[in-house]
């Protein structure tokens, strides 16, 4: 219902001009996110929405395999990886042409995955067979399988790539896996139904959300001790509706954002004091989160209201919500 002009890509001349004196002004208006693209996997539509970061309009809807869920991008932003759970594979798309480049084996029912910080390999959680599958993205070969707890889902990798954390939803554990040996080195029991694991950039904390438990456990990766169990409380929202899922921590390590599912809120948490600074109202049943490449924005996928909400990170304000396909699951933004 907005009255924005239809999305337009600047012409060659315009781009040349903008390189000149107008560049500063352009930057001021469009921000550094002007060339940014956001990819959103729509679980029920079997599609991926592509949103232009400048106009915040859906510019294309790409048909994908069945039930696309986990989504991530190569470190250079050129490739988009999508778990297509019901097709039991990972699809790889070119982020410029939006074409399918190749598919990767994933093991059955891949839900969520994480790329090694170097861009290879890919660690995939197989929800149905209690495995983490490790795949070389260049050769498309399975490198190894690591048996984990029941219903593995959350995948986090340390900034140095040495430690992988997988969460298993039914076992309610965070499994710490040494990526050199592909062996579990420790299991940490967390609250019920852990969904996501996320490392802080300084490798001092790993945050594990528990959807049913309603908490986020902050674990010290060195000692495997739980430093803090964060709880949430929102006036007017029942405790059952507070179901933490997606977690994102800023690169400076100071602020964490936690998606709270059917509470329709994203919590803003200080990573030193673990105090919740604010609850941001977004769309319904918010699950996954993604930063823009410059971290000026946070995108939230709202599964029940079929849209993504855009949070201005500097002001902690929700500025807009954009309708995408049905049941948006995950999102990733590339420059």
């Amino acid at each position: 219902m907005t009255t924005d002009a239809p999305p337009r890509r600047p012409s060659r001349t315009a781009r040349l001009l903008s390189a000149g004196a107008a560049a500063a002004a352009l930057l001021a208006f469009a921000g550094p996110a002007s060339a940014e693209k956001i990819f959103v996997s729509n679980e029920r539509d079997h599609t991926m929405s592509v949103i232009d970061g400048a106009t915040l309009k859906v510019v294309e809807t790409i048909k994908t395999g069945r039930r696309p869920r986990g989504i991530t991008a190569s470190p250079d932003g050129k490739l988009i990886y999508v778990c297509t759970s019901d097709d039991n594979r990972v699809e790889v798309y070119d982020s410029t042409t939006h074409k399918l480049v190749k598919t990767l084996p994933s093991g059955p029912d891949p839900e969520l995955f994480v790329l090694h910080p170097s861009g290879n390999p890919l660690y995939i959680a197989n929800e149905d067979d209690n495995m983490v599958t490790i795949v070389d993205v260049n050769t498309a070969q399975k490198l190894a399988e690591v048996p984990v707890g029941v219903e593995p889902e959350g995948m986090g990798i340390s900034p140095d790539g040495k430690i992988l954390v997988n969460t298993s939803e039914t076992t309610s554990m965070a499994h710490f896996i040494d990526t050199a040996t592909n062996q579990i080195v420790e299991n940490v029991v967390v609250d019920s139904r852990p969904r996501v694991a996320e490392f802080r950039a300084d490798n001092k904390q790993v945050w594990v959300s528990a959807e049913v438990g309603g908490t986020v456990s902050v674990i010290d990766p060195a000692t495997h001790q739980i430093l803090k169990k964060i709880t949430f409380e929102i006036p007017g929202v029942t405790a059952e509706a507070i179901q933490p899922v997606g977690v994102k921590i800023t690169k400076d390590g100071k602020t964490a954002f936690v998606a709270l599912g059917p509470a329709n809120r994203v919590a803003v948490v200080d990573t030193e004091t673990f105090a919740v600074k604010k609850y941001l109202l977004v769309g319904q049943r918010v699950w996954q989160l993604a930063f823009s490449p410059d971290e000026s924005r946070l995108y939230t996928t709202n599964g029940n209201s079929n849209d993504i909400s855009i949070v201005d990170v500097a002001s902690d304000k929700v500025t807009k919500s954009v309708t995408v396909g049905r049941s948006p699951w995950g999102a990733v933004a590339v420059p």
């Binding site: 219902m1 907005t2 329709n264 769309g283 849209d307 909400s309 855009i310 929700v318 807009k320 919500s321």
Partner: peptide
């Protein structure tokens, strides 16, 4: 979402 709001 109803105008003039752009989000919830």
């Amino acid at each position: 979402i109803i105008p003039p709001y752009e989000t919830y």
